[in-house]
Simulated scan of single mutants.
Amino acid sequence: MRHAETVTFGGSALDRAGEMRGDAAALKAALADPNTRAVVFWRGKPLIHRARPASLCRVPMDHPMLQGAMADAVLLGREDGAARFACDISHWMPEDLDADQLGGFLDPTEQRHPDAPEDSVFAELRRIMTWLSPRDAELAATGKAIFGWHDIHNFCAQCGAKSDVAQAGWQRNCPACGASHFPRTDPVVIMLITHGNSVLMGRSPGWPEGMYSLLAGFVEPGETLEAAVRREVFEEAGVRVGAVSYLSSQPWPFPASLMFGCQGEATSREITIDPVEIEDALWVTREEMMEIFAGNHATILPARKGAIAHFLLENWLADTLD
């Protein structure tokens, strides 16, 4: 697709400053530079200016919120020549925290730090991703993904010893056996499967009522993207797929996926779902999808804005998949 990188979390051309990650002197200078800023996270939620248009907060490195968080700051890159770090303050505990409301499909809660800039809150990225500019979205997705990786990789996978953060947050080294570990990204195919004038849609158990999306699944070791598309569609819906082509990709830090958007031509139409994999699947005509996108369908909701499924379906409807 000629405009593939206009998908959410793509296309900001961030300078990731990879050459700085192992340069102790450059990192020390960047941390002391008055132009350097930090993007702040709490339990995976980025700090944003709430007023529309919403924007990602960038605070000075000596900001009171960052006390106790500097040791594990992650270098995200550079903006206009100045370094940008991500800092995690999940050790902070809001006084009015209601734990029962956290962690839903689209966590609606917002947390306000007493030292945070005016009108700023911590908000769930999945909920606010379309509010942000491409650059803000990329910075937020990168920071969330890296901190999510650190949260579950504190120990060496080879020997079990506690590992140490290195390379400005982009590596963990084991002091016991010398192994090095790097951030993980899981490849996932998400498929725009068409048959004539219809597209194949499905829903997973536990999704909100009326929510359908394109079929998707993890790529297995030793498997091409094309093979993964055919296998996943047949496993989930019993539909055979012929020609497969790549369309676009999207980083998806929920928690650590890279979504490969693909188009496939179905060679069969009969649906036989695997109830372990999905709850339902159906063919939706182009005319029905237009009604769904307009919010006028009786039973099916539009795909969530910001997700690559919405992006692919929107371009299918507009005939701009080339």
Rank of each mutant, 00 (worst) to 15 (best):
V74Y: 03
V219Y: 00
D136I: 12
L75Y: 05
V165Y: 01
L27K: 00
D72G: 06
S55A: 15
V39K: 01
L317P: 02
D164V: 14
D151W: 07
R2D: 12
A318T: 00
R304N: 05
V233H: 03
E110T: 14
Q250L: 04
P302N: 09
R135H: 11
T8Q: 13
P255G: 12
A243G: 01
G210F: 06
G264A: 08
G103F: 09
A116M: 03
I271E: 06
E138I: 03
A141T: 11
I89K: 02
F254R: 10
F147R: 13
A179L: 02
E279Q: 15
P302Q: 07
R78S: 12
G143I: 05
S12W: 11
R172Q: 14
D280H: 14
W170L: 13
G81E: 09
A51D: 13
F85E: 06
F293Q: 05
S120Q: 02
F9Y: 15
C177A: 06
T267G: 08
E223F: 04
P53T: 12
M211F: 11
H3S: 10
A54C: 14
F147L: 12
D62M: 02
E288P: 02
L313N: 01
L282W: 03
D15E: 15
A176T: 08
I271S: 03
F122D: 04
C159E: 06
P251L: 14
A25G: 08
G196M: 08
L301K: 14
A4N: 03
T194A: 12
P108E: 08
G160L: 09
L215S: 06
Q158M: 07
A228H: 04
S213P: 00
L75S: 09
I300N: 03
G222S: 08
R286D: 12
S245L: 03
F155I: 05
E226H: 06
D186S: 13
T6C: 01
T299W: 04
N154I: 01
A140F: 03
P302M: 03
E110G: 13
T36L: 05
H63N: 10
R52Q: 12
T36D: 03
